[in-house]
Design a protein around this nucleic acid. Structure first.
Length: 1000
RNA sequence: GCCCGGGUGAUGGAAUUGGUAUACAUGAGGGACUUAAAAUCCCUUGCCCGCAAGGGCUUGCGAGUUCGAGUCUCGCCCCGGGCACCA
């Protein structure tokens, strides 16, 4: 027996596989294709165990599919541009290129040690000019379609990284990479119009085979809201000089509450506000409190995003005095306010406030004493036939001293805990009625009324009266002024039916279940605005309608009147792709002053240049035409410059290079300026999966034939942290390219799976500072790559991850050593016809044969569903039987090795070729198939339950019927005692599973 | 606050989708081999009562449906993730 030296065999096969091109994908459409993709790596320096956890189990799938005869494309590459590499290089005083490519070399070596079946001939590196030529080309395609444009927008600026970030790269108000608090800065930026695809990005999610939580995250990020845009005219007094605009547009999801809009709120950033303040300096503005408004806005601007949204939820704001708006539905004059609870970047940056039916507006109105107008009355319960209509009240009495609430407990059957309720005679004052009912039922008096609700309708069945009722209730809140007062005597007939209890607010929340009483509690005690649907009141022609049903009617009415329209708003914003940093693909654009003059087009707008010629931008008051770099001049090479540190003045370090900046305009030949910003790294990674299909193509990003053959990706495996950014951007690119005719599909990743996260042995996130980092290199050195790969597959449910347990790896290592020993130990070779394949049923090899086929099925299915841990468990069970068998056929030995091959590629290859004497690789062998009929057992164990309790099991022939099983149960001495002298009432029989005998 | 996941031995985790809970491993304890250790192999290992035979209990907690619930329903507790003044 040779000893198992993993170092030797691993090196040997790594070389051999490369030499034999074992894993090369064929572009010939000879077999059904399988595009198997893992997220490419960021060359940060070292491969950590998390990389391995992504790549190693994923590789098992690729290997198995290849053995199944599919034409597998499993490529790998490096996402080499970007901030982290650049920052790391600066820290080490290295050129980003040096640093990055050294890392790639190192990581490539580590990757190869892992034994993945990548087709290395297709490796892509996004920082290679051969790659970013096409990144730039893609930019120009988007530009031509009007999907890339330049605009000055408030952008997230990271003061530490000295660049702008996309919304997706800001986490909790801080830079995703360096955790520095992001500030808002107005800078002219290149943007991608991803919002043009918001609807499709949302809609297509339903059909994708992706984890539900990932789809949910994308849905939330896109954040579609349907409602209406409504224009509010501004009131013009005699002296008014308000020029433009003379109206404010708001977005609302509740146009059905328009009649309840009692004021408008503008975001501090709203252009109207800015303009009014500006005009104020020219004494044109109508605002009479400009100073107060300005100081409020300055204060709001100083707050970071975090301060604005987290801790302090207390509403703040200031009125724009001197200006009024007109509610177009009611014609009433309403005030305008500025408050930072309205966000400048969502909707129109302005809202109509409906304090009666929106919690935020309610709180704001409470604080500033603004009027609330009820336009929706709640309805609970469902209408029933023959309803009796009654007026009533629900009264909540609060003890001012203890804060407890007066409740009546009617007992379980009559509705449990309620507040005081009662019928109101026609014409009776609700307060008088409530005082009367409270005194009658509880005996308390001397109460102060404080607040009341709108009418609330309740359809219900009054069981005690045996009648269906619709009641129109008013909820009332009273303070009990003197907590010590003794309740006066109750009427005789009321006694015993109920008990009077004082409940804390928490108790009331838990115990009061009745919907009507609940609503009153929510409104008067919890101080919640009623934001649900209900009956419209005080709403002109819509009064009396159900608000949900009336919503489209209301929108139609607005549209007809011309001051409102149906609208959809998304949270998703256009993607800012400019980065004021060195290490990225240069944006391939030139600015030409001469062409701006020639063009004569002075408009600043986003245009589709295929139809309308050059766009014009303004810079320092001067006009420039935007000239795309012609395709034959691509790539715009990233120059080697001496100082690539970010200047921090909003410009890229490339702006320092005269040689780079000054160019001849490709259109008019006059001196012009190059764009000096580079592209966000996420642009590079938005299309890399296309390049893999044809990575060396110099004519186009990938040939149409190859793209058509390989895409879409059949299985994409990578971390959940890319749920919104990369995965959303790549989908956008795919849709845009499809619309340009370059692609034949609209969704790049048909199936997506996330691996879990491996934590340190202490259960905490791995980090150098905690000292709980697991180093894959030393694991490979100690145990061999096969063991590490296999343990990663075995340690946990793949999508779950979990803490690394240092001892656990021993189990897998022992298993592989047993396998090695078993295959390398001399054993009597079976005689011809003896123990062969297929062997006779029964006997030891017969048992092995059955187990083997069950294992083929189990392992195959488990790999397909990424349940690697149970696949390995099945292999272990099977192998235990092989070890115990006295006689195992050569075929069985080969089949087992093939099943193990995707998990442990090195050891299986060594045994396959050196022990079993094959000339070619096991990894190109056909995957074993199983024979369903030979897997079946002749006898089965049937659970026996007596009275629902499991009392034992019997062995019976497969498919035995109930009668036979019953006989067997009664014959079993261990079971008899449970049945002796008892009458069998019923039996439940599940074939091949269980019998449950119910006895008297 | 809202939306997703999840809670099973000492530990990582299984469980044919409503049918014998704890597979497979780790760890621990005991034994064999050895001068010794490591490695290897064998046995034990959910909890409680009992000398034993045996009995009882057990999938975060509490109810419910069912002949039967880790699995379904309702209520609650805890952990992880995402979103969060989005009109």
């Amino acid at each position: 027996m040779k000893l198992y030296h993993h170092e030797k065999i691993e090196k040997k096969w790594q070389k051999q596989w490369l030499a034999e091109e074992t894993y090369k994908a064929s572009d010939n459409k000879v077999a059904r294709k399988f595009y198997h993709l893992v997220m490419f790596a960021y060359p940060s320096g070292d491969l950590h165990i998390g990389h391995w956890y992504n790549f190693a189990p994923a590789d098992v799938v690729a290997r198995k599919k290849r053995m199944e005869g599919l034409n597998v494309l499993s490529p790998f590459g490096f996402d080499a541009f970007g901030l982290p590499a650049e920052n790391a290089a600066i820290k080490r005083k290295l050129h980003p290129k040096e640093w990055t490519y050294a890392n790639i070399d190192r990581m490539r070596g580590q990757l190869e040690s892992m034994g993945p079946s990548y087709d290395w001939s297709r490796q892509v590196i996004t920082a290679d000019p051969e790659y970013y030529t096409w990144t730039q080309w893609m930019f120009l395609q988007l530009y031509k379609k009007g999907l890339a444009y330049r605009a000055e927008v408030p952008a997230n600026w990271c003061p530490s990284c000295k660049t702008v970030l996309a919304n997706e790269q800001v986490v909790d108000g801080a830079c995703e990479r360096c955790k520095t608090i992001v500030v808002q800065k107005n800078i002219e930026q290149w943007m991608f119009k991803i919002t043009a695809y918001a609807d499709e990005l949302l809609r297509n999610l339903d059909a994708l085979d992706w984890p539900e939580r990932t789809k949910t995250m994308q849905r939330n990020w896109i954040g579609r809201s349907e409602g209406a845009r409504i224009k509010f005219k501004l009131h013009k007094s005699q002296t008014a000089q308000i020029t433009n605009p003379d109206e404010i547009e708001v977005f609302t999801t509740r146009p059905d509450t328009i009649f309840g809009a009692t004021y408008l709120v503008l975001a501090p950033e709203h252009p109207f506000v800015t303009e009014q303040l500006l005009e104020n300096t020219n004494h044109k503005s109508q605002i009479t409190n400009a100073y107060a408004v300005k100081s409020y806005i300055d204060q709001a601007a100083k707050k970071t995003e975090i301060e604005r949204t987290s801790l302090e939820k207390e509403k703040t704001g200031v009125e724009l005095e001197g200006i009024k708006a007109i509610n177009p539905a009611t014609g009433q004059e309403i005030p305008l306010w500025v408050a930072d609870y309205v966000l400048g970047h969502y909707g129109t940056g302005a809202i109509m406030a409906v304090p009666a039916h929106d919690q935020r507006d309610y709180e704001f109105a409470e604080k500033f004493g603004l009027p609330k107008k009820i336009v929706i009355e709640p309805v609970c319960g469902d209408p029933r036939p023959d309803e009796e209509y009654r007026l009533s009240i629900v009264a909540i009495v609060e003890d001012r001293k203890t804060g407890k609430l007066l409740s009546i407990n009617w007992g379980r059957e009559l509705g449990g805990n309620l507040f005081v309720g009662g019928g109101r005679e026609n014409g009776e004052d609700p307060i008088q009625c409530a005082l009367r009912e409270i005194e009658e039922e509880t005996g308390y008096h001397r109460l102060t009324p404080t607040s009341s609700t709108e009418a609330i309708y309740h359809h219900y069945r009054a069981h005690s009266k045996n009648k269906n009722r619709l009641i129109e209730a008013i909820g009332l809140h009273f303070y009990l002024e003197d907590g010590d007062q003794k309740p006066v005597k109750l009427e005789e007939d009321e006694k015993g039916k109920f008990t009077v209890e004082w409940l804390t607010k928490d108790e009331a929340r838990a115990k009061v279940k009745d919907p009507l009483h609940r609503l009153v509690f929510d409104r008067l005690v919890e101080k919640h605005a009623y934001a649900g649907e209900g009956m419209m009141v005080d709403s002109g022609e819509f009064t009396g309608l159900e608000s949900g049903k009336a919503l489209p009617l209301v929108i139609g009415w607005m549209e007809k009147a011309g001051w409102g329209m149906h609208a959809i708003t998304y949270k998703l914003h256009d993607w800012i792709v400019s980065r004021q940093r060195y290490w990225g693909a240069p944006i391939p654009v030139i600015y030409c002053a001469q062409c701006a003059i020639n063009d004569g087009n002075t408009k600043y707008e986003i245009r589709n240049t295929e139809q309308t010629g050059n766009n014009i931008i303004l810079r320092n008051g001067k006009k420039y035409a935007v000239i795309p770099v012609p395709p034959d001049q691509l790539p715009v090479r990233l120059p080697d410059i001496d100082d690539y540190t970010p200047p921090g003045d909003g410009k890229s370090p490339l702006a320092r290079s005269e040689a780079f900046t000054n160019v001849q305009c490709p259109e008019c030949g006059k001196p012009a300026k190059r764009e000096t910003d580079t592209m966000d790294t996420f642009v590079d990674s938005s299309w890399y999966f296309l390049r893999y299909t044809d990575p060396h193509n110099a004519e186009t990003f990938a040939s149409k034939e190859n793209v058509a053959h390989w895409l879409p990706v059949d299985l994409y495996i990578g971390g959940a942290e890319h749920s919104v950014m990369h995965l959303l951007y790549a989908r956008f690119f795919t849709m845009a390219l499809a619309d340009m005719g370059w692609l034949h599909f609209r969704e790049p990743f048909a199936a997506l799976r996330h691996q879990g996260i491996i934590l340190g042995p202490d259960g905490e996130k791995m980090s150098k500072s905690r000292g709980n980092v697991i180093d894959p290199d030393s694991l490979v050195k100690n145990f061999g790559a096969d063991t590490v790969r296999m343990y990663l597959c075995f340690m946990s449910e793949y999508s779950q991850g979990g803490p690394w347990s240092p001892g656990g790896i021993n189990g897998v290592h022992r298993f592989l050593q047993r396998v090695w020993k078993w295959y390398t130990s001399p054993r009597p070779s079976p005689q011809k016809g003896e123990g062969d394949f297929p062997p006779p049923r029964g006997g030891i090899e017969g048992g092995v044969f059955k187990t083997l086929h069950k294992t083929i099925k189990k392992v195959g299915e488990d790999i397909d569903t990424l349940k690697f841990n149970t696949a390995i468990s099945a292999l272990m069970i099977c192998f235990r039987q092989l070890e115990e068998a006295t006689d195992v056929s050569a075929e069985t030995r080969e089949i087992f090795l093939k099943l193990l091959a995707p998990f442990a590629p090195f050891i299986t290859e060594e045994l396959w070729r050196e022990q079993l004497g094959h000339a070619s690789s096991i990894h190109r062998e056909p995957w074993p198939t199983y024979d369903p009929s030979s897997m079946e057992d002749e006898s089965v164990s049937i659970a026996v339950q007596i009275g629902g309790k499991t009392r034992g099991a019997i062995t019976a022939p497969k498919d035995a019927d109930e009668a036979n099983v019953r006989v067997a149960v009664h014959a079993d001495p261990r079971l008899q005692k449970y049945l002796e002298g008892k009458e069998v009432k019923k039996t439940v029989f599940v074939k091949n599973r269980l019998i449950n005998i119910l006895v008297a």
